[in-house]
C-alpha cells in the first residue's frame, strides 16, 4: 500500500518534474556553465575564464547603476503595490452586490500582456497629449481658480518618460496598476480564511473595525503577506518589459534595470557569458533578499 502511494505520487509529479527539468533546471545549470566562458555568439571558440565575467560584472559601473535603479523600482512597487492590493481585497471581501464585477475589473490588467499595457501607458503618460497631464492641468486650473496661482502651468506638461527623475516613478506607477489585481486575489483568499467566529467574538467584546483588523485579521494574514511580499520582490526585481518598451533604459540610464541590462548584453551584443553572469548575480541577490524576508517576517512557532 505504502509503496503504491509512492509510485502514484511519482507518476503525478512526473509531468511537472519533466517540464521543470527541461525548461528551468537544465537551462539554469547550462547558464551557469556559460557564465564561466567568454563567448561571443559568432566566435568559434569560447575560452573558459572561470569567474572572470563575475569579476567584471562587479566592477561594471553600468551594472551597479542597473542594480540600484532596480532596487529603487522594487522599493516603490512592493510596498505601495501590496498596500493597494490589500486595501482592494479588504474592500471587496465584504459581501456587497457587484463585487465580482470589481474583482474582474481589477484583475483584468494582470492577464493583459506587458506590451499592451506599456503601449497604453505611453499614451497616458505622453507629455503633450497624455490623459494624466490633462487631468493635472484641469486640477491645477481648479486650484488656481480658488485663489492665487499656486500651481505653475508647467505641471500640466510633465515629461514623464523623458525626465531622469520621473521616468522610474512613472514606470513603477504603471507596474503597480498592472499587478495590483494579482495580489488582491491572494489577499482575498487569505481574508476568507480568517475564521468568522473570531471576528464576531471580537465584535461582541466591543472591538472597533480598526481594532478587529489589526488585532485579529492582520496576525492571521501574516503568512499571506509574507507570500505576497516574497513573490512581489522576486517578480519586480526582474522588471523588463515595461522599461524595454517604454524607455529602453533611458533617459540617460535612469530606467536601466538588471534584466534589461542582461538582455542588452546577451541579445543585443551577444556577450552570452557576460549576460549569464549578470543573471546569476541577480539570482544570488534576490535569493539573499528572499531569505532575509523569511527571517524577518515568518510566523514564529
Amino acid at each position: 500500500m505504502k509503496r503504491n502511494q509512492g509510485l502514484s505520487a511519482a507518476l503525478f509529479l512526473l509531468p511537472y518534474a519533466t517540464l521543470f527539468a527541461v525548461f528551468v533546471l537544465a537551462p539554469a545549470v547550462y547558464g551557469f556553465w556559460v557564465s564561466l566562458h567568454k563567448w561571443h555568439i559568432l566566435s568559434p571558440s569560447a575560452p573558459f575564464v572561470g569567474f572572470g565575467n563575475y569579476r567584471q560584472v562587479l566592477q561594471d559601473d553600468l551594472f551597479r547603476i542597473a542594480f540600484l535603479r532596480t532596487a529603487y523600482f522594487v522599493l516603490m512597487v512592493v510596498p505601495i503595490g501590496n498596500a493597494l492590493s490589500l486595501l482592494l481585497a479588504v474592500g471587496l471581501a465584504q459581501d456587497y452586490k457587484g463585487t465580482t464585477l470589481y474583482k474582474v475589473a481589477f484583475y483584468l490588467p494582470v492577464v493583459t500582456s506587458v506590451a499592451v499595457v506599456a503601449l497604453l501607458w505611453r499614451w497616458l503618460l505622453s507629455a503633450e497629449f497624455g490623459l494624466i497631464n490633462y487631468y493635472i492641468g484641469k486640477g491645477a486650473e481648479m486650484v488656481n481658480s480658488l485663489g492665487p496661482r499656486v500651481i505653475s502651468a508647467h505641471a500640466a506638461s510633465l515629461p514623464w518618460l523623458n525626465s531622469p527623475a520621473l521616468a522610474m516613478p512613472a514606470i513603477a506607477m504603471l507596474s503597480i496598476w498592472w499587478g495590483a489585481g494579482g495580489n488582491m486575489l491572494i489577499y482575498l483568499a487569505g481574508l476568507k480564511a480568517v475564521p468568522r467566529e473570531l471576528l464576531e467574538a471580537a465584535s461582541i467584546d466591543g472591538a472597533t473595525p480598526w481594532q478587529r483588523f489589526w488585532r485579529v485579521t492582520w496576525p492571521l494574514l501574516r503568512p499571506t503577506v509574507l507570500f505576497c511580499l516574497v513573490m512581489s520582490v522576486i517578480a519586480s526585481s526582474q522588471v523588463f518589459g515595461q522599461t524595454f518598451i517604454l524607455t529602453g533604459g533611458g533617459p540617460y540610464y535612469s530606467t536601466l534595470t538588471v534584466v534589461l541590462y542582461m538582455y542588452q548584453q546577451g541579445f543585443g551584443l551577444y556577450q552570452l557569458g557576460y549576460a549569464c553572469a549578470v543573471a546569476y548575480v541577480l539570482f544570488v541577490a534576490v535569493l539573499a533578499f528572499t531569505l532575509l524576508q523569511f527571517r524577518l517576517l515568518a510566523v514564529r512557532q
Binding site: P251, Y253, L269
Partner: peptide, 25 residues
C-alpha cells in the same frame, strides 16, 4: 561597434537634452 555606439548615443542625447553637462557626458 555594437557595444561602443550605445555609449555614444547616450552621451549625445544627455548633452543635447541638457540631462547632463556635455563634458561630463
Amino acid at each position: 561597434y555594437n557595444q561602443v555606439v550605445p555609449f555614444y548615443d547616450a552621451a549625445i542625447e544627455a548633452s543635447l537634452n541638457r540631462i547632463k553637462p556635455t563634458d561630463e557626458a
